[in-house]
Simulated assay, not measured.
Amino acid sequence: MRNLTLRIQAYPGDLNPIGTVFGGWIMSMMDKAASIAVDDLIDSPAVTVGVTDLRFIKPVRSGDIVTIYTTIQKIGNTSISVYVEVVVECHKLHCDARCEMSVTDATFTFVAISKEGEPLSVRSVLRTNLDQDILELLK
């Protein structure tokens, strides 16, 4: 299920020399959102171990309201894959009506770890109050 996980506004300090938001800033926000989604699932620390299929579709500009949606794609033995989509509200310069446009997406993979930094079985640290769609991924 697609969940609104993070909203933030882009400011002038987030811009590169050509006036659009740095890709690294977007990736950082995406990683934060994905980590929030993982934290909602497990009662353990988790670390990002990979990012795949990263696409910068459209630029983000100063003042844009950036909304980040997450979807849990897969729960493995020690890892969780999270699809992350970044959208911004269209400004009057970009479209006639208020709408959202996708600007970036990627899949982030996290590994659950112990306090000592060793991988843990995700099933051993799952929270007890999970949604039905998440429980379906465990089958």
Score class of each variant (00 low, 15 high):
1 M>A: 11
2 R>A: 09
2 R>T: 07
2 R>V: 09
3 N>V: 07
3 N>C: 05
4 L>E: 09
4 L>N: 05
4 L>P: 03
6 L>H: 04
8 I>E: 13
10 A>H: 05
11 Y>S: 10
11 Y>C: 09
15 L>M: 13
15 L>G: 03
16 N>V: 05
16 N>H: 06
21 V>Q: 05
23 G>M: 07
23 G>W: 07
24 G>L: 03
25 W>T: 09
26 I>F: 00
26 I>L: 14
28 S>I: 00
30 M>D: 10
30 M>I: 13
32 K>P: 00
32 K>A: 12
33 A>W: 03
34 A>M: 11
34 A>R: 02
35 S>L: 08
35 S>P: 02
36 I>K: 09
36 I>C: 08
37 A>G: 14
38 V>N: 00
38 V>F: 00
38 V>S: 00
39 D>G: 10
40 D>H: 04
40 D>R: 08
40 D>T: 02
41 L>N: 05
42 I>Q: 11
43 D>R: 13
44 S>W: 06
47 V>W: 00
48 T>I: 04
49 V>E: 14
49 V>W: 11
51 V>F: 03
51 V>I: 15
51 V>L: 14
52 T>W: 06
53 D>R: 15
54 L>G: 15
56 F>T: 14
58 K>M: 08
58 K>I: 00
58 K>D: 12
59 P>I: 12
59 P>Y: 10
59 P>Q: 11
60 V>D: 09
61 R>L: 14
61 R>H: 15
62 S>Q: 12
63 G>C: 06
63 G>E: 05
64 D>Q: 07
65 I>K: 00
67 T>W: 00
67 T>A: 02
67 T>E: 15
67 T>D: 00
68 I>P: 02
69 Y>V: 01
69 Y>R: 02
70 T>D: 15
70 T>G: 14
70 T>F: 12
71 T>A: 15
73 Q>R: 15
73 Q>F: 07
74 K>P: 06
75 I>F: 10
77 N>Q: 12
78 T>F: 12
81 S>C: 07
81 S>F: 02
83 Y>I: 01
84 V>F: 06
85 E>S: 15
86 V>L: 01
86 V>F: 00
88 V>S: 08
88 V>T: 14
89 E>F: 06
91 H>D: 10
92 K>I: 08
93 L>I: 09
93 L>Q: 12
94 H>K: 08
94 H>Y: 05
94 H>C: 01
95 C>R: 08
95 C>D: 08
96 D>N: 11
97 A>L: 11
97 A>G: 03
98 R>K: 13
99 C>Y: 07
102 S>F: 01
102 S>A: 10
102 S>K: 13
105 D>G: 02
105 D>T: 01
105 D>N: 14
106 A>V: 01
106 A>D: 01
106 A>W: 00
107 T>S: 11
108 F>R: 00
109 T>H: 03
109 T>L: 04
111 V>I: 11
112 A>P: 13
113 I>D: 04
113 I>N: 04
118 E>Y: 03
119 P>V: 09
120 L>F: 08
123 R>F: 03
123 R>M: 07
124 S>D: 11
124 S>I: 06
125 V>R: 08
125 V>N: 05
125 V>G: 05
128 T>F: 03
129 N>L: 03
130 L>M: 04
134 I>L: 11
135 L>N: 08
136 E>Y: 09
136 E>L: 12
136 E>Q: 14
136 E>T: 13
136 E>F: 09
137 L>T: 03
138 L>C: 14
139 K>S: 11
